[in-house]
Design a protein around this nucleic acid. Structure first.
Lengths: 203, 203
DNA sequence: ATTATACCAGAACATACGTTCTGTTGTCAA
DNA sequence: TTGACAACAGAACGTATGTTCTGGTATAAT
């Protein structure tokens, strides 16, 4: 079932990927055959069976050009709300139909992601400005060095910082290397999620 | 030729768009027919003809599922080099096969774009950090308020700033509102391109 | 009334394309 | 050798699907 892909099969996979990108629709078996110099369609079908069994693609029986790559070129993450200074992350005003479409060139993983709109200038020390979109992955724990959204309990304030747990306290390091870190006890911080990417549309 | 689209035709266009996104391949005429409650395929063909004439999509004759929307979901911009402090933009080390794939959710326009990798911390006042990717549009003139890459001739240095031409001089305003502007004579600056978006991949 | 145009309906046709069947070749292990 | 197995070759088949043809209906302009 989960066998290694042969060279031919990887070549087929690569061809399908570029074909879809260039044409907007998947190739036929014949087109795959010609492109790879395979002698006959039945052999193409044979390889596609293997690729389908390996979970690399899916097909619809008796349906022309129905090859679908399992790893899609783009995916959508929901805009769940906004993040601003002095406030916890707000999920209230989220429109369930409001998505932002991304490619793997922007973020590698694609599960458990959501987007937040930044309001105000309060994230300047994270090099994040008013209007920027932050792509987040939900998690409540942070590993050292991760860029996370943390809530500081005593100030009731949410910020984006790099997280370091070191001998008894937590150091929150601004992304801007010219700014000093914040040192707090572990009980004072609450991790809300990890920052995966920041997108700024100018003008 | 360039007529207004009827409601039916807009609905067909919208259906094709979501169908492609959900299935990875375009619909057949029959699938369009069923989805929109149209009585017959020939009518679908009729509408597709109109949409094709209007430039909204293209088809390949006698080819199943070959509808292609003219406005693609994703497009690629070349990585042309990098940008660093104290240096003009370097295009030298560009690999012609190195692209970054974007969606319209990231940048609206898609012509004349290129991407630059930022090296070093010198763009901090533009809220741009080491490793960030800047999406640029090539232009040598700037309108007021635009975020541009400018070369300061006397310092032989390239930076990202908002551009304002005001009574005899040029004001270059950092994106970071806590930083002061630079005031220089118009002859001292050379516009290299406009910043369209900034993308930061964290970790 | 006539013409034009957009939209609708149904059916027949030609073919692009996935599927399946039979057989060949090469390699590697027992 | 034998057997198993993966990759290859060619052809025939069924059908999904784009195409085309003939005709009908509504509205608006002439």
């Amino acid at each position: 079932m989960m066998e290694q892909l042969s060279e031919r099969q990887q070549a087929i996979l690569a061809f399908i990927e570029t074909f879809v990108r260039e044409n907007g629709y998947p190739p036929t078996y014949e087109e795959i055959r010609v492109a790879l110099g395979i002698s006959t369609k039945s052999l193409v079908n044979h390889h596609l069976e293997a690729l389908e069994a390996a979970g690399c693609l899916s097909r619809v029986p008796n349906t022309p050009r129905s090859i679908r790559l399992s790893r899609p070129e783009t995916f959508r993450v929901p805009r769940l709300g906004h993040i601003a200074a002095g406030l916890p992350i707000s999920f209230g005003d989220s429109d369930p139909d409001d998505f932002i479409e991304l490619t793997r060139d922007i973020v590698a993983e694609q599960d458990g992601l959501y987007a937040l709109q930044v309001k105000g200038d309060s994230m300047i020390d994270a090099l994040v400005n008013d209007g920027d979109v932050v792509i987040m992955k939900h998690q409540t724990e942070a590993r050292n060095g991760e860029m996370v959204a943390v809530r500081l309990r005593d100030r009731d304030e949410t910020t984006l910082k790099r997280f370091y747990r070191e001998n008894g306290h937590v150091r929150l390091q601004p992304a801007n290397p010219t700014m000093p870190p914040i040192i707090v006890p572990p009980t004072a911080v609450e991790v809300q999620g990890r920052v995966v990417a920041v997108i700024r549309q100018v003008n």
